[in-house]
């Protein structure tokens, strides 16, 4: 088949190179997805052979940035899973509102659509003034985009529908200005955002939070790595803090499950009870 050129053994070689030469550890990522993305990049960049692909990755630091950008999945949207955001509005924010100061961590925030969605929720709950949103990702390129808060205008119809379904009462377009084919979100929204690179595989806890969101990141990790990341989140959550995951992710099989209780019924939001 033409698009599975880079085979399993070669992927193992690349991953070791990346770890040894550049300190990026992808060895505990789920292999099937990684293999697809590596092959996608290989054919996208038209490498004539695996050897040349490997050489470039080993020796060209600028190409590493591209590799990280393309291998980690930069797909996200605003108010994805509106019911999830409704649950945040109704079941999480009222509790957070009782605290004098709210710290939220978006782990693996990609281009920031979820962070801006959260900022809008906080504004509408009148909690924005006492909140701080930490947004981290392994990939510096996406953080650059997230910081700007500029998203394609073509997405706004979908985002606006999601927003309304999540219980939003305002005119969604009041949060951005259209510039040509882009939507630039209100500068006040990112005034409370702190962007930083953070690698969930190798970096430690850096603060204590009342809410951590990490959605559709853990699906790319194997079980061992998932457990380590759950431990990292547990270490970074205040007593009675909330942990929110993607719609197909669960803490059920992790070491921390017994300390947490699911909030409401369907949404993947847990609260630390111990």
């Amino acid at each position: 088949m033409e698009y599975t050129v880079v085979q399993d053994e070669e992927i193992d070689i690349l991953l070791l190179d990346l770890l040894e030469r550049h300190g990026y550890d992808f060895t505990d990522y789920s292999k099937a997805s990684l293999k697809r993305r590596i092959n996608r990049l290989f054919s996208l960049d038209r490498f004539p052979s695996f050897a040349e692909f490997r050489f470039r990755l080993k020796n060209d630091p600028t190409y590493i940035r591209r590799f990280i950008e393309q291998i980690t999945v930069p797909v996200t949207e605003m108010f994805r899973d509106p019911n999830f955001y409704r649950a945040l509005r109704e079941e999480v924010l009222p509790t957070l509102g009782t605290y004098p100061f709210i710290r939220i961590w978006h782990a693996g925030c990609s281009t920031g659509e979820e962070v801006y969605s959260m900022a809008i929720l906080l504004k509408e709950a009148n909690l924005f003034h006492k909140s701080l949103l930490y947004a981290t990702d392994i990939n510096p390129e996406v953080l650059e985009k997230a910081r700007k808060g500029i998203f394609p205008l073509s997405q706004m119809k979908q985002y606006s529908e999601n927003y309304i379904l999540s219980g939003g009462k305002n005119d969604f377009s009041s949060y951005y200005s259209a510039i040509y084919d882009h939507a630039k979100f209100d500068a006040s929204l990112n005034s409370k955002m702190i962007f930083s690179t953070h690698n969930l595989v190798s970096d430690r806890s850096f603060n204590e939070f009342q809410l951590i969101l990490c959605r559709n990141v853990l699906i790319y990790f194997d079980r061992d790595l998932q457990s380590r990341v759950f431990k990292l989140f547990d270490d970074s959550l205040d007593h009675l803090g909330f942990l929110a995951l993607g719609s197909k992710e669960t803490i059920r099989f992790s070491g921390i499950a017994s300390k947490y209780k699911q909030v409401g019924g369907k949404e993947k939001i847990w609260r630390k009870t111990v």
């Binding site: 599975t4 789920s30 099937a32 997805s33 697809r36 999945v73 797909v75 699906i219």
Partner: peptide
């Protein structure tokens, strides 16, 4: 929906393929 070597499922939220997620190609191929 992807299949891992140890015959377990894994999920992937990357770009749509042929405007589709889930993509049939991704599952067939893995």
């Amino acid at each position: 929906l992807l299949i891992e070597k140890d015959k377990t499922f894994s999920l992937d939220y990357s770009e749509k393929i042929h405007y589709s997620r889930p993509s049939l190609d991704a599952t067939f191929q893995t």
